[in-house]
């Protein structure tokens, strides 16, 4: 009993920082292995534990944000449809890289109604405010 209490105390001492703010950076196109799906799963799991989650889409990640993609036509599961669930998990801070969209000839448009479009420089300036940054 006492030893388990000790280990619990040690654990607390070892992690004095409370991690609350997560940035999840999506850098992969929708069918690039399972990265997009795994990223979305991670975001929803973190949010369900009441962590503050922001989503970023940069590089090929911006392809995930385009409307009217039909995954079923190549026999894939349409995980992009799950983006609709983000608002129910209070994931509202969604940032798209304008530079990446422009490079790829994509319009400033996405499946997200209230996404914010930022330059790479603006995204760089945002990153320091997060406790943990994960890339997928």
């Amino acid at each position: 009993m006492s030893s388990s209490q000790n280990s619990a105390t040690n654990l607390q001492e070892m992690s004095p920082i409370t991690v609350t703010r997560y940035a999840i950076i999506n850098t992969s196109a929708p069918f690039d292995r399972l990265k997009g799906k795994e990223s979305l799963d991670a975001a929803l799991i973190l949010a369900s534990y009441e962590m503050d989650v922001s989503l970023f889409f940069i590089g090929n990640g911006v392809y995930q944000t385009q409307a009217n993609q039909q995954a079923e036509s190549i026999a894939h599961k349409d995980y992009l449809a799950t983006f609709k669930a983000l608002e129910f998990y209070d994931i509202e801070d969604i940032y798209l890289c304008q530079d990446s969209l422009t490079e790829r000839g994509l319009a400033t448009d996405s499946v997200f109604d209230d996404a914010q479009y930022l330059s790479a420089e603006q995204i760089k300036a945002l990153l320091p405010q997060f406790d943990v940054v994960l890339t997928f």
Binding site: T27, I58, G59, N60, D99, A120, I123, K124, L127, P128
Partner: peptide, 12 residues
């Protein structure tokens, strides 16, 4: 791949 480039784009 472009991981290096993506990193450099956001390297302060």
């Amino acid at each position: 791949d472009d991981r290096l480039q993506q990193c450099l784009n956001l390297l302060a």
